[in-house]
Design a protein around this nucleic acid. Sequence first.
DNA 1: GCTTCGGGATGACATTTGTCAGACGCCGGG
DNA 2: CCCGGCGTCTGACAAATGTCATCCCGAAGC
Lengths: 190, 190
Amino acid sequence: MIRGALASLLSLEPDIDVVGEAATGDEAVAVAAVTRPDVALLDIEMPGKDGITAAGEIRREVPECHVMILTTFARPGYLRRAMEAGASAFLVKDSPARELAAAIRRVLSGERVIDPGLAAAALSAGPNPLSPREREVLSAAVDGSTINDIAARLHLSEGTVRNYLSSAIQKTSARNRMEAVQKAQDQGWL
Amino acid sequence: MIRGALASLLSLEPDIDVVGEAATGDEAVAVAAVTRPDVALLDIEMPGKDGITAAGEIRREVPECHVMILTTFARPGYLRRAMEAGASAFLVKDSPARELAAAIRRVLSGERVIDPGLAAAALSAGPNPLSPREREVLSAAVDGSTINDIAARLHLSEGTVRNYLSSAIQKTSARNRMEAVQKAQDQGWL
DNA sequence: GCTTCGGGATGACATTTGTCAGACGCCGGG
DNA sequence: CCCGGCGTCTGACAAATGTCATCCCGAAGC
């Protein structure tokens, strides 16, 4: 519904044409490859492939296409990854709707559009401190699985899982698994 | 942004006037009390007061106003509570945007609009099995607080908190606190 | 009047976590 | 070539968590 509403609104702008819509990351890449638009506007949380991965693929397959990320969550790690994937803009859904069309025009003219406060947060927070394995294990813990479950799912020993979780807990300066998951998530580290 | 976009779209409909917007639950109640609209369209997750509570208050203060809930999450418990609060419609954000205006018209003509699948889920899931206190304790646990924190925050003994959590874990047929929180949340029980 | 149920508490117990200290192998940078 | 970091594992230990039985109280229902 949101996508549809935004598409309708953007269509009303005289200088903007909406050439396609997609519900998933993979679909977005496919549509972009065919329609070769000037701008792709992507959400991050999507079924299938996430928006940042999709952004990277679109940049590779359609280099002349500017990729913009529009997301609900202002997470530093998201911004960082989006930039690394070659995004031209990072917008948060709670800015006024008027700004969307304006941002698209600025991106088309070659500018990059990023919320200054969020940029500061991303820089001051530093890069993701979690090692790939720690990230993987912590991700496997988000649903409340027990250590044993995680060990089985990742083909690791229980002790190893405990160690990774322990170090993730310390790196996030959390007090237990649950807090670690929360903190990591809201930094955009997962 | 979403609210703004939907408002703009609805304004384009010849028979619909948008008479006010609000960012929080309390604000929504205040605006409704002043503008006395035919329809109030509310989200559930909002800063301040949640949309279901707001719905109840609007029904009491402006009885001729039909309240509609438009939310991201199709949680049975949400639907149930919305109905108990006197809502006339329960829409999920992933239905097409076209349907929104149609639903508003149907509500105005006295109909109730509810996704049939969700209604079935709500009925088959039965009512919230958690006692008020269990709900309270489980809610206090969502952020990963330790048992001691929760006990302090709620002025309870640690043992009592453990007991409530334990029974919440069993009622949700979860395997630990975290799973209980997740299951309860996605049933809309918190 | 008795029973049931929810709220609140205690104490005991088994399990699960979280922490630490090692150990080994691999790889990449000085 | 050696060191550090990462991945993996183990064993040991303390603390937190989950479960149970049992108790007390007050309110509601039969």
